Amino acid sequence: MNTRGLRSQLKDSVPVAGLCPQGTYGVQDTLRGGFTSVKNELLPSHPLELSEKNFKLNQEKMNLSTLRNIQGLHAPLKLQMEYRAARQIQRLPFLQSSNLAVDTLQGSDEYIGFEDILNDPAQSEMMGEPHIMVEYKLGLL
């Protein structure tokens, strides 16, 4: 299916008054319609693009449904409760957290990925006064 052809058909349609983001002279009316974003107007260039964006979520759903079919309803519920508990564990606001418990539960601790190389806390630019950061997080400032 050619999505670009569909896009050209939409541009040739008759605009409805009040719904058209362009003004009377064919120029974007920024005051009434806001800023335009080209990223929001783009359609997927390939049919598999949407599937690839949601790959990790789809894989997690498939793993939970397989686990439910094999071990019963309690297994995915227990695993989801463990995920939630592991995500709530955090360090102080001025320290980087490795989220090792979440990585272990997901099984991603065995693989070296893009974020492992470029997410080095030693190269982080986020360093501030510890007392101020904790007070801000607690709402004391």
Rank of each mutant, 00 (worst) to 15 (best):
M1E: 07
M1I: 09
N2D: 13
N2K: 09
T3M: 13
S8H: 09
S8A: 04
S8E: 10
Q9Y: 02
L10G: 12
D12V: 00
D12Y: 05
S13D: 07
V14W: 15
V16Q: 09
G18P: 14
G18A: 04
G18H: 09
L19Q: 06
G26V: 12
T30E: 10
L31S: 13
L31G: 12
R32V: 13
G33H: 04
F35C: 09
T36D: 07
S37V: 08
E41N: 14
L43H: 05
P44D: 05
L50H: 04
S51N: 02
E52Y: 11
K61Q: 03
N63E: 09
S65G: 07
S65W: 01
N69C: 10
L73S: 05
L77C: 04
L77F: 00
Q80V: 03
M81Y: 06
M81E: 04
E82I: 03
E82N: 01
Y83H: 05
Y83S: 01
A86T: 08
A86G: 13
R91G: 13
F94L: 14
L95G: 06
S97M: 10
L100G: 14
A101Y: 07
V102H: 06
D103H: 10
Q106S: 14
G107K: 14
D109P: 00
E110I: 15
I112Q: 12
I112M: 15
F114M: 02
F114W: 05
L118V: 14
A122I: 12
E125A: 14
E125V: 11
H131R: 14
H131K: 15
M133R: 00
V134M: 02
V134Q: 03
Y136I: 02
Y136D: 04
Y136K: 08
Y136Q: 11
L138A: 01
